[in-house]
Design a protein around this nucleic acid. Structure first.
Lengths: 258, 258
DNA sequence: GGCTGGCTGCGTATGACATACGCTGAGCGT
DNA sequence: ACGCTCAGCGTATGTCATACGCAGCCAGCC
């Protein structure tokens, strides 16, 4: 055994964690994994995940389609590399912050920014697996550190963090989805989601009608700032943090006593 | 104008809301939309969404591929119909329940069942739009009704409901994803997610390591009952409900005074 | 009772896509 | 100078959604 590896580690993970050594035998490579992944992310960001085909990517890179497969085993692996690179560096959070609530909130808001910049992450992750790459794990670790000053059990911290994560993902997914694309039309004069809903709801759905009259979906047309606590996103996040705060208070004040 | 329709309603919605009249001119149809959608759901349930191709669906139905397109405009529309039919009837919730917390919890648990029975819903919805079909809207309405006895504003009720919805979706997605599929191998002896993570995490991610040692991911191997409040799912759900309860209490006791 | 027109089912064709396979030539180590 | 290894790539294959147009059926009407 070489290091701490007990069994055979998949090649994808070897590359992700920087344990792949460069073979110095063949010709210098005109293509690099970095360039491929960066360009793929750029395409997905600007034109959507559906526009990211291997042929399209190769065209952008000025190489032949099959050249990509020297650096990437298949499209799924390309997605894995993209998921590792796209989030960028995780926010810096001290191991035991004084105000866990403010830190966790900041983490959530910054993560929202990641998902807004790269909406395709939500599509790719859905079909996939829990993260095993350093890029995403760094974000998880940062989020856990926000709760470092509390007396929660580690597994409870993780549950709380996943709760926040799911909320951020769900809300971003809803607010970045295209409400008018349902029938498949790209008509700019297409009726908004709220208008369509208002026309369809009848007496069968009284609670929905009430919510609609209160202007629930008006906000999604105007793109308000996420940090605003009065916004839809901020409202839900504060409910979560309230619930967590109750538990943290119950668990006792000082974890530093351990 | 015929009814309450102000503009042109997309054909998909006309069909979904039962406003399409049967043209009685041609031959009797051997295929029906119901049969198509039901079979499509069955394939997606048992073999995954990726296995659901138009050709595969037609084969199951004993018809030619192109025959499907007489009943469904395209695959996206088929997905829309599937999303409408799959959830089934929403739980019955009285308009002003005495115990909103119990009702909302029940709603969440039953919705979890829907997603566990039809995991493909999470993949289909990701790429799509907010729901406009009666099937999904009935569930939303039922969830809103659970909060009918509180003094929250309608838009606040919706925010709370979406918060619960996002949590249910996120948690189900994580627990139904295949942890070992990351490298692309179907090896039954593949290391579990926790094992892989333990081998990869080094001193860079101390908080994650701590959580791992607390056995965070052990539960995902054993498929525990969802209703258990001690489970990961129940824990997060109770945090949410705690936070909502705080707000409900602040808002005053009696909404019936209005 | 025969006609007609719209509608259902379907055969064929097209173009996008991921990717297996094998060739070519470059450069490093010997 | 030689050979091994590896990067780039041309071609081929199989899958997929779906456009297009034909053929038969059947309700309504003359």
């Amino acid at each position: 055994m070489s290091e701490k590896t007990g069994g055979e580690l998949p090649r994808t993970l070897e590359v992700l964690w920087g344990r792949s050594e460069r073979r110095a035998r063949g010709p210098a490579q005109a293509l690099s994994l970095d360039r491929i992944v960066t360009t793929a992310i750029a395409i997905a960001d600007t034109e959507g995940l559906a526009a990211l085909s291997m042929a399209r990517l190769a065209e952008r890179l000025g190489c032949a389609t099959m050249s990509l497969y020297r650096h990437v085993a298949n499209k799924h692996e390309l997605w894995t590399f993209m998921l590792d690179a796209a989030p960028g560096p995780a926010p810096e959070i001290s191991p035991t912050p004084a105000d866990w609530r403010a830190e966790l909130r900041r983490w959530a808001v910054e993560l929202t920014g990641v998902y807004r910049r790269h909406p395709w992450i939500l599509q790719v992750t859905t079909a996939g697996t829990p993260p095993l790459d350093p890029g995403q794990l760094a974000w998880l670790d940062a989020g856990l550190r926000a709760l470092g000053g509390t007396a929660l059990r580690p597994r409870e911290k993780m549950s709380v963090l996943l709760l926040v994560l799911h909320y951020v993902r769900g809300d971003t997914q809803l607010s970045t989805s295209d409400p008018g694309a349902a029938p498949g039309q790209d008509d700019p004069a297409a009726p908004s989601y709220g208008e369509l809903l208002a026309r369809l709801i009848d007496e069968r759905f009284p609670a929905l009608a009430e919510a609609l009259n209160d202007g629930v979906f008006d906000e999604y047309d105007t793109e308000g700032p996420v940090e605003d606590p009065a916004s839809h996103f901020g409202f839900g996040l504060d409910r979560i943090l309230d619930g967590v705060e109750k538990l943290v208070r119950e668990r006792g004040p000082h974890p530093a006593a351990s």
